[in-house]
Design a protein around this nucleic acid. Sequence first.
DNA 1: GAGCATAATGAGAATGAATCTAGTTTGTGT
DNA 2: ACACAAACTAGATTCATTCTCATTATGCTC
Lengths: 148, 148
Amino acid sequence: MTRSTDTSWAEHALETLQAAGHRRGGARTAVVEALAGHDCAVTALDLDDELRRRRPPVGRASVYRALEQLEQLGLVQRIEVCRGTAGYERVDPAGHHHHHAICRDCGRMVPFENSSLERAIHEVSEGMSFEVTEHDVVLRGTCERCAN
Amino acid sequence: MTRSTDTSWAEHALETLQAAGHRRGGARTAVVEALAGHDCAVTALDLDDELRRRRPPVGRASVYRALEQLEQLGLVQRIEVCRGTAGYERVDPAGHHHHHAICRDCGRMVPFENSSLERAIHEVSEGMSFEVTEHDVVLRGTCERCAN
DNA sequence: GAGCATAATGAGAATGAATCTAGTTTGTGT
DNA sequence: ACACAAACTAGATTCATTCTCATTATGCTC
Ligand SMILES: [Zn+2]
Ligand SMILES: [Zn+2]
Ligand SMILES: [Zn+2]
Ligand SMILES: [Zn+2]
């Protein structure tokens, strides 16, 4: 199972959209399918490039609109991938997820996951006046390639 | 000690700048002093508003330039405060710091700190091919005021 | 299947944070 | 005081993101 396209996520996403009262539309479906093909964060403009070529082409506004709706429904997570640009990545319905280390020099992004970190975050969230529904962790530094 | 202006941080910052080979200049000093007056993150444009009125006025470019230099030297930390805008806050030279919970509805930002979270992050950083020099944690959700 | 209300779409304009440019001023060593 | 580089300001520019609005497609009812 090395296929990078997560069909089950795509199905889940489309169902959730429908359940939320959305009609089905070609552009949004295309965005969902494109997201399903990426294991880690993609920028909106990357998706736009990817989808503009399709026939019929998907408009930029539709990409952003779809991403916003998906984020609202908790189907994708938005993270700041580099100064002033956001990356979007699909959210596993079971809650399984990773975080990122980002190289300050080359922008390379390496995902990681760690259960004691998740536990600590969960505990902090409990003891907060906020009702925390989401969290994000970013490590910044120099990747091995840029360190030499 | 309820004074919000942290004089010691300002002094430390100005010394570090000088040690890094920077001349002293009015605009940058003004930015340092303004930052010293804020306990938590401020946006560059807020600082700009605050400093534009001075005589002589500080230019927007100088604000951004100073913030970038300060960040480079580890004297301020940059965090995404809301969609597409960065906030900057001073970094305690002793390493003491906090993270933030941000309300999705009203944008309110509540700082918190937690040692087991820091410990977990430290451990993850150790086991990484990256050389991690900085980390950021953001909790998102609904604040008590917006929850009612 | 035709007709309707309304959601979805896409081209392009508008926004706004951040960066760049050019020309001027200021700081520092001699 | 002089020279030279760093620092400065105003304004133009870039670029991701959002908005507008005319057009098309969808789901529903008859
Ligand atoms: Zn990822
Ligand atoms: Zn996590
Ligand atoms: Zn803070
Ligand atoms: Zn921390």
